[in-house]
Design a protein around this nucleic acid. Structure first.
Lengths: 168, 168
DNA sequence: GCTTGACCTCAAGTTGACTTGAGTTGGTAC
DNA sequence: GTACCAACTCAAGTCAACTTGAGGTCAAGC
């Protein structure tokens, strides 16, 4: 019943071949078997991949996502975890809003240098304060970087030159 | 006037010694000089570090942040960039809200397995769709993980198994 | 029969942002 | 004056999540 080569899975899911093999290796997905050498996937893998995507977007690591799948590949997330995650997302959203406000302010503020603007200093302080209040176990920064400028594992072949004003 | 050893900077800023040295190495911060071997920092570095924090929270890479400082260490961000970033944050916020809603739904949904819940499937689909619509330059997932569960550079001694709430 | 192309394995490399470790130096307290 | 300890340098390691590369297999088409 409707088994797919890995190539079809990539084209239907958007995940790369190497990512799929990696996912299989770490037990995140399962192939239905082999045809010769070739992995065969059944259609359910596409849904699983969506879930994985979802989990990634939500900020779970692949290991955590893996732990959310039951043995049969179905979802198995304790509802309490979900509530916690939702709450966490809520806090994150709040923080991002404050941040956006600060940035917007800076963009509109007429002070010659932002550092000279007392409002900005105040915003800065409030944002840092927020950081300190929220439990930050090892002084790590948060990581908000979205898919709009995802800079984790950015492939080296893609030069950063095409973005508005080439940082790098 | 009021120069600090690196140790004082770490205790006042929360940044680690090694991070500070690293920042200096890549030109993000500057020491005011040396006293013997020891770097001396003046108080302004604390503000700079706040800005760096801010930039990181906003999702800029250190390289990008570096490019925002003028030679004299003052801020120098083109306002258009800021507007763009604010808009980006706005999109990010929207997305996170949808995500939170989805997660909340899953948590409350009585279906035995989430995959069987048509509503969940719908939410899944809408989130994936959103991902596709928003410009995703390298097909990477977004990274939302906040400081509440900072999972970049997470020390390996932390096993991924203990998850239920304590995101440490 | 031979090429092609999609797939395979396995090891090693990549990325950013640090951290760790080994071995050294020098200011300060006793 | 010497012990101590914070700082130093420099190289190498870490982490997650893949990607890349070299070399191999196999079914299909000419």
């Amino acid at each position: 019943m409707n088994l797919m080569d890995i190539g079809e899975v990539t084209s239907r899911s958007g995940a790369s071949v190497s990512a799929l093999r990696y996912y299989e290796e770490i037990g995140l997905i399962r192939s239905a078997g082999r045809r010769g050498l070739r992995r065969q996937f059944d259609a359910s893998v596409l849904l699983t991949l969506s879930l994985i995507e979802l989990g990634k977007v939500a900020g779970f690591s692949l290991a955590e996502i893996a732990s959310m799948f039951a043995n049969d590949g179905t979802l198995n997330i304790p509802r309490a975890d979900l509530h916690a995650k939702a709450a966490e997302l809520g806090r994150q959203i709040t923080k991002l809003r404050a941040l956006r406000e600060a940035i917007q302010h800076v963009a509109d503020c007429p002070a010659p240098s932002h550092l000279e603007c007392p409002n900005f200093r105040k915003l800065l302080k409030s944002i840092s304060a927020k950081k300190v209040n929220s439990r930050t176990p090892r002084g790590q920064a948060s990581q908000v970087s979205a898919d709009l400028s995802s800079r984790r594992h950015r492939p080296s072949r893609r030069k950063a030159a095409d973005s508005p004003e080439r940082y790098e």
